[in-house]
């Protein structure tokens, strides 16, 4: 492991953990601007976390150890996921341990633990949220996998850094299949991060919520971890998107420390644009009824498969 790779790796994990709430804050800020509201500060998510960390935790009387362990597991999973997604550099030693398929598996692990924890206390909302989360998940997961599959077929590897490197290193070419998968990925990202047409992150309306319903019983530090993990998940998804569709600019062995140094502001710019686009998309769409959510996700899944077919037809 070269020092550069180790630095990149460390930077990725710490950077992701620290920057994730800011990214969430940025999306909220953009959304508020677009809605003609006065925007909360970029720091608002951090303040929320600090507030939660200064409170006494209350556990439901019948909460099991699984309930207490889940926030740590979910958070740790998101951290490991952040470690293997090339956001700033592609020289990631940890990504040998887990490739793109394993990344999908990691995200699934987090989802399953979150859902199990939601079912643990045995309240109506928790179980409802768990059911809906799994409903969204079982369609979103294969869709994401298919998106990665197309990228893997293009670059003949399933390792995420290598995919990003191959796609960035090739002579600029138009890949029609990536157009399909980009749309599919966008739909999956919206659904998986409890964003607008599927779930509304801003409300606590019982009938519509998914993610909020699952973490209702958490408080204080557990809730802080869950919120943080959710922010990390959004950050991770954005970085997966960059790695697949705008892979240029990530530092690697060839570009050395300077490349890595340049990659940081570049990533910030990418994130800023993506956050603004996400906010715009959310402004423009209305919440779907829960029963329409499967249709939305099925569309994502079928588009990803279509992308695969188009790849086989046009690009081989």
């Amino acid at each position: 492991m070269t020092p550069l790779a180790a630095t990149t790796q460390l930077l990725e994990i710490v950077g992701a953990a620290l920057a994730a709430p800011a990214f969430l804050g940025w999306v909220n800020q953009c959304r508020a601007w677009l809605q003609n509201r006065r925007a909360p500060s970029l720091m608002q998510p951090y303040r929320g976390l600090r507030k939660l960390l200064n409170k006494d935790a209350i556990l439901a009387t019948n909460a099991s150890p699984l309930f207490r362990a889940a926030p740590y597991v979910v958070f740790a999973t998101m951290l490991v996921a952040a470690a293997i997604i090339p956001s700033m550099g592609t020289g990631l030693p940890m990504s040998t341990a887990a490739d793109g398929i394993a990344l999908v598996g990691l995200l699934a692990t987090a989802r399953v633990f979150l859902s199990l924890a939601a079912m643990d206390v045995g309240t109506a909302f928790g179980t409802l949220g768990a059911r809906r989360e799994m409903m969204v998940g079982f369609l979103a997961e294969p869709a994401l996998l298919m998106v990665l599959f197309v990228a893997a077929m293009l670059s003949r590897t399933t390792s995420l850094p290598l995919i990003a490197e191959t796609l960035a290193g090739q002579a600029p070419a138009l890949y029609p299949s990536l157009a399909f998968t980009a749309v599919a990925f966008l739909l999956v990202m919206l659904a998986e991060n409890a964003r607008l047409p599927i779930d509304n992150p801003a409300t606590h309306l019982e009938l519509t919520m998914i993610h909020e319903a699952m973490i209702l019983e958490y408080s204080a530090r557990h809730l802080a971890l869950m919120e943080w993990a959710a922010a990390l998940k959004l950050f991770n998804y954005a970085c997966i998107g960059f790695a697949l569709f705008v892979p240029w600019g990530a530092g690697n062995e060839a570009s050395g420390p300077i490349g890595l140094l340049l990659a940081v502001p570049l990533l910030a710019i990418k994130l800023a644009i993506a956050g603004a686009a996400l906010a715009l998309l959310e402004i423009l769409s209305a919440k779907l009824r829960v029963f329409r959510a499967p249709e939305f996700l099925a569309t994502a899944f079928l588009l990803a498969v279509l992308g695969l077919l188009v790849h086989l037809l046009l690009e081989t």
Partner: peptide
Amino acid sequence: HPLPFSLQLLNACAALLLL
């Protein structure tokens, strides 16, 4: 990708038509 750019563009158009 040995395809010339114009063909890539054509392919992209075709894919978008399908979409």
